[in-house]
Computed example of a mutant assay.
Amino acid sequence: MVEIVKSRDALAQALALIEAGDVVAIPTETVYGLAADATNGRAVARIFEAKGRPRFNPLIAHVSSSAMAEEIGELDPLSRRLVEAFWPGPLTLVLPLKEKASIHPLVTAGLDTVAVRMPRGFGAELIAALGRPLAAPSANSSGRISATTAEAVEADLGPRIPLIVDGGQTPVGLESTIVKVEGDSLRLLRPGGIAAEEIEKVAGRPLSRGGTSGVVAPGMLASHYAPNAAVRLDAQEVGRGEALLAFGPDEVAGAGGAVAARNLSSAGDLREAASNLFTMLQELDASGAATIAVAPVPETGLGEAINDRLRRAAAPRDSMANGQ
Rank of each mutant, 00 (worst) to 15 (best):
I145F: 12
S64Q: 02
M320S: 12
G211C: 05
M68G: 07
A305R: 02
Q236D: 15
A258P: 08
V172C: 12
G288L: 10
A258L: 01
I26M: 00
L75D: 01
A255K: 09
A255W: 14
L188V: 13
G256L: 04
V31D: 05
S138D: 04
S141E: 04
N263I: 04
R190W: 04
A109F: 11
A273T: 08
S66L: 09
D308V: 08
E283N: 03
G41N: 03
K180T: 06
L244T: 00
G168P: 07
V181A: 09
R232I: 07
N57H: 11
N307R: 15
A290Y: 00
N322E: 07
V44S: 10
A45C: 04
A274T: 05
A109T: 05
L233K: 07
T170A: 12
R81E: 10
A289Y: 02
E125G: 07
G89T: 08
R205A: 15
A313V: 13
V181I: 12
L93I: 07
G303S: 11
L34Q: 00
V44F: 03
A217K: 08
E29R: 09
E49F: 09
G52A: 05
E175C: 00
E84F: 09
F247G: 09
G193P: 07
S176I: 06
L59Q: 10
A67N: 03
R55S: 11
G323Q: 13
A258K: 14
L270S: 02
G219P: 02
E70L: 00
L11S: 01
S266H: 11
I292N: 07
G301E: 15
A246S: 15
R46Y: 07
S185E: 14
I4A: 09
E154F: 14
L11W: 14
L186S: 05
A217D: 02
G248E: 00
G41Q: 12
G301H: 14
I47F: 03
G167L: 02
G211I: 02
A243I: 04
E3Y: 00
